[in-house]
Amino acid sequence: MEFSPLISDEKAPWPRNAWYVAATSAEIGDRPLGRQICGERMVFFRAGDGQVSALEDFCPHRGAPLSLGFVREGNLVCGYHGLEMGCNGRTAGMPGQRVGGFPPIRTFPVIERYGFIWVWPGDADEAYVDRLHHLPWAEDDGWAYGGGVYHIRCDYRLMIDNLMDLTHETYVHASSIGQREIDEAPVQTRVVGDEVVTSRFMPNVIAPPFWQLALRGAGLDDKGLVDRWQICRFSLPSHVMIEVGVALAGHGGYEADNALKASSIVVDFITPETETSHWYFWGMARQFSVDDAALTDTLCEQQGAVFREDMEMLELQQANLSRYPDRRLLKLNIDAGGVRSRMMIDRAIAEESLTLDAAAT
């Protein structure tokens, strides 16, 4: 079977009415942050009360990027001629000039939660808080989290494909999380509610190096056989949560008691920038040795190295797809998770288009 490579078309290849991770909370301090999200150039800054606001990154005076300016007394000051913009997108002043009549620039709904800044690039009237992706582990002291962010020069859907089919671990990540049993274990893909779920279970295997490290961190034997699992969950607009772990063999695997396993959730927020680039917010939330900050740092460093291997492969894959846009790509049963995820994305885009067409008439 064949399918077309991911190339641009007339419609933007992402849903707009959705909450996307725009930044980590730590990225927005005293200075404004410019970032392109779903094709929209935005600037994020903290007002005097510490709340994060998002405006289009365009000064109404001469069109300079507002992200090159600075924050003063809660307003965003353009770094070109000093025009001040408020959180509501309206001009707040300018030395020696009358600017009160300037039309406002666009603002974007923003939520700061779970250590991330979330932005809604679509219709602001649809930006309901209850549509935000809920992360129960982020509000639970029984979990620890560490992560980072990469800018990756490829279509965001290629990253989703990558995460929904972990067969590549055997080859791309051979020295860390890969092992031949991944190839040999059967894969099940199904749609459960609003998620695409791909799962793989590997009983009685030797833990690969990364999971040997995790077992030691959990105070468990890292030399014996383990039961390993991977459960990938895609949800709109472009989030993949992967339940991963190993348990001492013969104690229930995924269902084993926490004292007998090292389990975690690989957190993947994939935010489109352009049709051939995206922001990748990655991390790991774990339920073992949660007070061990050194272990958090070590696992984060190891995980970051794994994802850099993904980045190299995906960017070269994108370069090939861009170089040969008419080539047809083959698909196998292992691609089902990515295919179903992209089908869900396509439906969301189509539904938005129908809504816009209905509103226009």
Rank of each mutant, 00 (worst) to 15 (best):
I242D: 05
S263E: 15
Q179T: 07
A127P: 04
A185C: 04
I152Q: 05
D130V: 00
P136H: 07
A127M: 06
A207T: 06
D221Y: 04
A207S: 14
M159F: 12
A174F: 10
K223R: 12
P237C: 02
W211I: 00
A144E: 11
P203S: 08
D183Y: 09
Q212M: 11
A259G: 06
W137K: 03
R180L: 11
V149F: 09
R131Q: 13
A174W: 08
G147T: 02
S199H: 00
V197W: 08
H133C: 04
S264L: 13
C232Q: 15
Y150I: 01
E169D: 07
N258Y: 03
I231F: 10
L158M: 13
M241H: 10
E169V: 08
Y156A: 05
F269L: 12
F201P: 01
M202E: 07
L225E: 12
D140F: 04
Q212R: 15
V196Y: 08
I270P: 05
I206H: 08
P136G: 08
D257Y: 01
H239W: 11
D257V: 04
T189V: 14
D227Q: 09
C154A: 13
C232D: 15
D268V: 02
D141W: 02
G178S: 04
D222L: 02
D221A: 11
L135G: 00
Y128V: 04
L225Y: 07
R180A: 13
H168W: 06
I270S: 03
A256R: 00
V149L: 10
D221S: 12
P209R: 05
Q230E: 12
V266K: 01
L236M: 14
L135H: 06
G193K: 08
V149T: 11
Y145A: 10
L260W: 05
S263R: 11
Q179D: 14
M164H: 05
Q188P: 02
H151R: 14
W137P: 02
V240N: 06
Y145V: 11
L260V: 03
S263V: 04
G245H: 09
S264K: 06
Q212T: 03
A249W: 02
A174H: 10
G224P: 00
V267D: 10
F201K: 03
G250Y: 07
H251A: 07
I270D: 02
P209Q: 07
E184Q: 12
L132E: 13
A259S: 15
I182P: 01
V240Q: 03
T170M: 04
L220C: 07
D130L: 01
Q179Y: 07
S199D: 11
I152A: 01
P208S: 04
I231A: 03
H134K: 11
V197E: 14
A207V: 09
V172K: 02
G250P: 10
N162C: 03
M159D: 04
V129A: 14
S238M: 09
I177T: 14
V266T: 10
H173G: 08
A247F: 06
A144V: 06
S264F: 05
I206D: 12
G252T: 05
N258Q: 10
A185V: 06
D183L: 14
L158H: 11
A127L: 09
V192S: 12
C154P: 01
A127F: 09
V266L: 15
M202H: 04
V246E: 02
R153L: 10
R233P: 00
D222N: 10
M241P: 00
G245Q: 11
S175V: 08
H168G: 09
